[in-house]
Design a protein around this nucleic acid. Structure first.
Length: 221
DNA sequence: ACATTAAGTGATT
DNA sequence: AATCACTTAATGT
């Protein structure tokens, strides 16, 4: 116990992390995450990482969910994927090692607890912990697949399908089939226009696929 | 009652 | 599927 000087050892923090990550990481790694990382609470809709930000910390989600978006030159947004418990951002992993800037935006979907780990530990842990190595590889893998899915969805499915998928995904990560959302917000996440969404939403409602009222959508799962 | 914001619609490209 | 122009409906002050 010589290198605990940075921060007083926090047994409570350790216990909490251990409970969440025991299947993912070895105890010693959890101990280091606990010691070097900083647990942070974010309110809903908080921008954790924005485009062009220099990445100094990597986020590890303890609870809540985060959505990852890109934006094109004209400022049009597109939802890529969600981060949940035990997820980290593959983009961050990529940026860290080469000190590049973020090409994504990470926004909390609901109030979140996230542990921020300084990026310099990533490399150290890569050689030190087998489970960390697996975790990073695994993250790359799943994110890559999700990206493929996102592209597939974009290229081969019509807007109607995309809306349904979007709503179901969202209901899933938030764990609530009733979503507090406007047509305008949906349009922004899918990079479409409000009018188009309203039309299709009406159609979907008539077809019995969903229920909606002002600021509320309920999807059939 | 009035203003503001969300949602619905026809016509056009 | 997008945009325009306009209507209607819901909600806050």
């Amino acid at each position: 116990m010589t290198d605990t000087a940075f921060k007083p050892y926090d047994a409570k923090c350790y216990d909490r992390l251990f409970e969440k990550f025991q299947y993912l990481f070895e105890a010693e790694l959890i101990d280091e995450i606990c010691r070097f990382g900083k647990v942070t609470r974010f309110p809903a809709e908080h921008v954790i990482i924005d485009l062009g930000d220099k990445i100094t910390n990597m986020p590890l989600v303890i609870n809540g969910s985060v959505r990852i978006m890109t934006e094109d030159e004209e400022g049009r947004e597109l939802l890529l994927y969600y981060l949940e418990l035990g997820d980290t951002c593959a983009m961050t992993l990529n940026c860290c090692s080469r000190a590049t800037k973020s090409n994504i935006r990470a926004i909390t979907e609901e109030p979140c607890e996230i542990i921020m780990v300084p990026v310099e530990y990533l490399d150290i842990w890569m050689v030190k912990f087998k489970k960390w190595r697996n975790f990073v590889l695994e993250s790359y893998n799943t994110r890559l697949n999700e990206m493929l899915e996102a592209i597939d969805n974009l290229a081969f499915h019509n807007m109607e399908d995309r809306i349904i998928k979007y709503l179901r995904d969202k209901a899933m990560v938030l764990g609530d089939e009733k979503l507090k959302i406007t047509h305008f917000q949906i349009a922004r996440d899918l990079n479409s226009s409000r009018v188009v969404i309203s039309r299709l939403m009406k159609k979907l409602e008539d077809a019995g696929e969903l229920e909606q009222s002002r600021n509320m959508v309920k999807v059939k799962l």
